[in-house]
Design a protein around this nucleic acid. Structure first.
Ligand SMILES: [Mn+2]
Ligand SMILES: [Mn+2]
Ligand SMILES: [Mn+2]
Ligand SMILES: [Mn+2]
Lengths: 221, 221
DNA sequence: ATAAATTTTTAGACAAGTCTAAAAATAATA
DNA sequence: TATTATTTTTAGACTTGTCTAAAAATTTAT
């Protein structure tokens, strides 16, 4: 069994490993968890004892198979709870993360399996992130940033890179939600801002926004 | 804000105060929480600092108004989650307590209010215990132990005193569930065992069983 | 009312998780 | 390559919540 704190470290390392290849650095973990490097070193030793990470002093850490399984299960719980909050309790997507951070640590295999069934075995959370299955596997969906599309190309909005409450509320205000079709009407060379159509509306969005929206390419039609 | 441990102490004192009148003893709290008296003394001082209990050395503790509110809210969450687990996730009543012990500490007012709504504002949990409202008030329902009924009297089974997993599973095996009408067919002087009818079945149950089942008196009919 | 038994508190210790400050190792730069 | 800057680890301390053992207060029994 793992403590709440251990689970949070494993999850942080899990997320950092997806971006990086090679070991995850002490500082990176410290930053992600808003803690100090010295605390990370202490915890990493404990996790190494428990055989969930590989650790060599001064070279970062990597998850073992076991560690990856544990971490993926925490992520699975986090995302299933987020679906629950949005689908069943009328939370909006910018309100769920904080509560899911707590719920992800509830220990009960039956709970999470029944929740999964109750929700209809969802594959993605409210932010478009994939939900790992019972074995911790998640299928990667082909996706690209909106900012990489060219004029007249279009796609379906399927996720966000930044899922901060502020960004999500901004998207709400603009009427940008997952599942909607977006077409690039024009691209401004000066600042890389975009003129897009979404639903029946036309919007102008900055490159920063476009670099935080994931799109499933929408060939033809 | 209160820690998980503080919430557990407050809840324990809350439950003990309902049985007792006058202060709750250090030992009683220690036993309920399966901890040591010395630990209780330490925590009680902290709770006293935080103004959720009144504490005089060697005289037990009592909850303040604030303390009672906090405790009742934890109980409210515990019972609402138990309803959720049984009604929505197909848990049986003997499986919910352990998970609810964890879920009761999740902090989010919106979560619990929406859960309440989602469940249709239930008034009782799966064991027949009342669910405190937002202000911590619970309405007491008139109830008596099955063991206090006389021959030919009957009532509706509305709760259990012992809600241990073992007892609940025993009741399942015998087909005794909340909401069923029970009639005393006969009472054995020798050991106070009862012959009862429940649904269309007849059963013989010991006095110990009858002393753990709550009945709403069922006058006439 | 004294003595004995019980309950409660204190004193001191420990594990988990964190922190600051300083030392050591590694990486970057001149 | 020698020096400087950055990263990482160590050493020591602190908080929370717990424990054991011993002292103090209270209750019960003689
Ligand atoms: Mn989240
Ligand atoms: Mn998410
Ligand atoms: Mn319960
Ligand atoms: Mn209950």
């Amino acid at each position: 069994m793992f403590t709440l704190s251990e689970e949070n470290y494993l999850k942080a390392i899990y997320h950092l490993e997806l971006g990086n290849d090679g070991g995850v650095s002490t500082n990176a973990i410290a930053e992600k968890l808003a803690t100090k490097a010295s605390s990370v070193t202490d915890m990493v030793k404990k996790l190494s004892e428990k055989e969930v990470v590989l650790y060599k002093k001064y070279k970062g850490v990597t998850l073992t198979i076991l560690g990856k399984t544990v971490a993926a299960n925490v992520v699975r719980k986090h995302r299933l709870w987020e679906v629950f909050l949005v689908e069943k309790l009328n939370f909006s997507w910018h309100e769920v993360h904080e509560v899911a951070e707590q719920l992800e640590h509830i220990k009960s295999a039956k709970l999470i399996n029944q929740l999964d069934r109750f929700l209809g075995f969802p594959t993605h959370d409210p932010h478009g992130d994939p939900i790992p299955d019972k074995d911790g596997n998640l299928k990667i969906v082909e996706k690209s940033l909106l900012s990489t599309l060219s004029k007249n190309e279009s796609g379906i909005c399927i996720g966000v890179d930044d899922s901060s409450s502020e960004f999500l509320q901004f998207l709400d205000k603009k009427g940008i939600t997952l599942g909607k079709k977006i077409t690039i009407l024009d691209k401004e060379d000066f600042d890389d801002s975009l003129s897009i159509s979404i639903g029946d509306k036309k919007l102008s969005i900055s490159n920063k926004i476009a670099s935080n929206l994931y799109i499933r390419a929408h060939t033809g039609q």
